[in-house]
Amino acid sequence: MPLSSVQETEIKNPPVSKPPLDPHLKALENEAIHIFREVAAEFERPVMLYSIGKDSSVLLHLARKAFYPGRVPFPLLHVDTTWKFREMIEFRDEIAQKYDLDLVAHTNPRGKAEGITPFTHGSAFYTDIMKTEALRQALDAGQYDAAFGGARRDEEASRAKERIYSFRTPDHKWDPRNQRPELWNVYNGMIRKGESVRAFPLSNWTEVDIWRYIQAEDIPIVPLYFAAERPYVERDGMMILAEDPRLELQPGETIQHGMIRFRTLGCFPLTGAIRSTASNLEEVIAELEIATVSERQGRAIDRDQSGSMEKKKREGYF
């Protein structure tokens, strides 16, 4: 929204174009806005982790709602591994411009210096350096004392126990056994210098909630979430999108074409597509409601071992 509408003090009633949110989504939205405002008021240097995915898109929409008619009062931080899908980066830059956002993108210089790629170093090591370590670098550089993330408790078992304000030590460690109790919606934002909090406004949302909210609020998302005819190769039981020249075909691999889409978006070599014909929101939601596998199934990094997410989180990963 342009600020000019604010200057008039009287804010004109925009034409009502969409029906009101159903009470379920409204309750989740209210809770998220409350968390955004609370963190923005209590911390000196908040930042929002922006991964460009569907959850980040919802998170950003909620942030804009929370601070309207003002601007979003903190920067967005994108940890760029340089291995994201091309369409993600295009989408990111478009959104930042459209909504007048302060976008900070950070890449771990070790990636280039040491030639660390998901192909050469294995997903576990690559993720540790290019995501976890990169995130720590960026948070330290910005001296951020609070970082919003789009994690949901229904995603993964260790997330289920994470607080909405998740306390981190100066070296970004999460100690699941010593979390602060969190009662009602009264959040404890008291920290010492160097310590920080990760704040999760979407904690109580489920994957279906995210999609239904995107639909109800008409939130733009990366087109890769919708099925289209795309080139891919099959590798380690995953369908990897084959459009980046850095993807080298291995013996026996061929580029195939088919109707595919993605349930989650990350680094293209580590993110598997699913076969799908769902090319719009209605079809995606319909597909989801009968899905029998979880969304993280397509993520290589979660499959290294059971409990791998907890391990990464302890080390500072989101």
Binding site: R153, A157, S158, R159, A160, K161, R177
Partner: peptide, 23 residues
């Protein structure tokens, strides 16, 4: 399925509040 944290799996006890979602 419920005991999400490694410490809990190892010790076979639930140590904290976890949140579950169904509909």
């Amino acid at each position: 399925l419920l005991d999400g944290l490694q410490a809990e799996r190892e010790q076979g006890i639930t140590i904290d509040v976890a949140y579950r979602y169904f509909s």
